[in-house]
Amino acid sequence: MPQLFPEAVARPLELAEANGMVRIRSACASDVENLSVYFTGLSVTSRNKRFMGARTDLASVAAECVAKAGRPDHFTLLAEFGQEGQRRIIGETHYAYDAAARHGEFAISVADAFQRMGLGFQMMNAMETRAIDLGHEMIAGETARTNAEMRGLAKKAGFSDTGLGDWQSVHLAKRLSHPR
């Protein structure tokens, strides 16, 4: 990885539309406050889509994302935008392996100003790569039936509707391909 982003878990990418570089990296304990600020900065619509409902305890959610990331089979990846020496979180994905169900579950969000630039797809690829490295074979998520953006992103990333959702939600899953 270029020295500009030494902690990156994926190749840094340039967002031409935003005139800056983005790195995707693992979250650490020092990210709690910035992750809380990020969650607070999401529009009400984006926050509701990320959490599948209203949440007011965003500082607690940020702390949980980072605290659980230290456990085996759990991680949070952050997308940071760098421009003129400044960096800020513009996306996150949280992953947790469910041993009983034998698949990983994830949640993802991208800051409103950075949506539809391919960042969500890049974050999902980084998450899948990390899950494969952990030896996981299946990854799943749930989204509201009304969340057309997430359903489209999941389809583009190779997820299928499992039919396990209810009248309000869609359950999506993907079998992970391990390199041979």
Rank of each mutant, 00 (worst) to 15 (best):
R25C: 11
R25Y: 06
R25M: 04
C28G: 15
A29Q: 14
S30M: 11
D31M: 08
D31I: 08
D31A: 02
V32T: 13
L35S: 03
L35Y: 03
T40R: 12
G41C: 02
G41W: 00
G41T: 06
V44G: 00
K49L: 11
M52D: 02
G53L: 05
D57W: 01
A59H: 14
S60L: 11
V61M: 12
A62S: 12
A63N: 15
C65P: 07
V66W: 09
K68A: 14
K68H: 14
G70V: 03
D73E: 13
L77R: 10
L78H: 08
Q83Y: 10
E84N: 15
G85N: 09
G85M: 07
R87L: 15
I90W: 06
G91W: 12
E92D: 15
H94L: 04
Y95M: 14
Y95S: 09
Y95T: 14
A96N: 11
Y97I: 09
A99N: 03
A101M: 11
A101H: 03
A107C: 02
D112Q: 10
D112I: 08
F114H: 11
F114Q: 03
R116C: 07
M117D: 00
L119T: 05
F121Q: 10
Q122R: 15
Q122F: 04
M124A: 03
N125F: 00
M127N: 02
M127I: 05
E128F: 01
E128W: 03
E128Y: 01
T129V: 02
T129G: 07
R130Q: 10
A131R: 05
D133H: 10
D133Q: 13
I139T: 10
A140I: 05
G141I: 05
G141H: 04
G141K: 00
E142Q: 14
E142I: 13
E142L: 00
T143M: 11
T143F: 03
T143L: 06
A144P: 01
A144V: 03
R145E: 03
